[in-house]
């Protein structure tokens, strides 16, 4: 069964036709070529596929693309690029809070969601926000440091917008969703 959906991804409305079994993760990666979100387990246990849906972090491997119809989706690609990093990304760079990098897009999105909801988290709150994001390389300590630093930086710089989602970009057509 196919469904026509309209999703606002990183500020741009995207229209697509997806089969029922298309996961949001596959829709982002395969149909939109947004490869930042990774599949680590497919079972909602590792958090590598974390993206924000309507501002809340979710595992995109456990959401159907059709369920995201009408929703606002923010992926790491919507945060910032090398020339204009989000404070969270900047803090990850400065704290060397990454190694292999595979968990990092998900980790960054979890951190972003936390700081949108709670701009001044405690260390324990940071740990809780990322305890659904597994990392095998870093031992987590620098990631927690980075998120604490990002919170302080944002605090110093005043309120930050939730991502850099631009307003009036034209809708991109996605002719067909693969998979069937």
């Amino acid at each position: 069964m196919l469904h026509n959906i309209r999703v606002r991804v990183n500020g741009e409305w995207v229209e697509a036709c997806v089969p029922s079994h298309r996961r949001l993760l596959d829709f982002l990666r395969e149909d939109l070529d947004l490869i930042g979100a990774k599949e680590g387990c497919g079972g909602g246990e590792c958090g590598a596929c974390t993206v924000l849906v309507n501002g809340e972090p979710i595992n995109s491997c456990l959401v159907l693309a059709v369920e995201a119809d009408g929703a606002e989706v923010l992926t790491v690609e919507g945060l910032g690029d090398a020339k204009d990093l989000d404070p969270v990304q900047e803090a990850f760079v400065q704290n060397s809070a990454l190694q292999c990098g595979y968990c990092i897009p998900g980790m960054v999105m979890s951190a972003k969601a936390l700081l949108i909801r709670n701009p001044n988290p405690t260390r324990d709150e940071v740990v809780e926000a990322i305890s659904g994001n597994l990392c095998r390389c870093t031992g987590y300590a620098r990631i927690v440091d980075a998120i604490m630093q990002a919170a302080q930086a944002a605090d110093a710089a005043g309120p930050a917008p939730a991502g850099r989602a631009a307003g009036h970009a034209p809708a991109a057509e996605v002719s067909r969703a693969g998979g069937e």
């Binding site: 990774k38 910032g80 990093l85 760079v93 400065q94 060397s96 990098g101």
Partner: peptide, 16 residues
Amino acid sequence: VVRSDALEKVTGAARY
């Protein structure tokens, strides 16, 4: 020094 792969990895640009 800052890790040479940091920017690619925090922006989601790094390809696996």
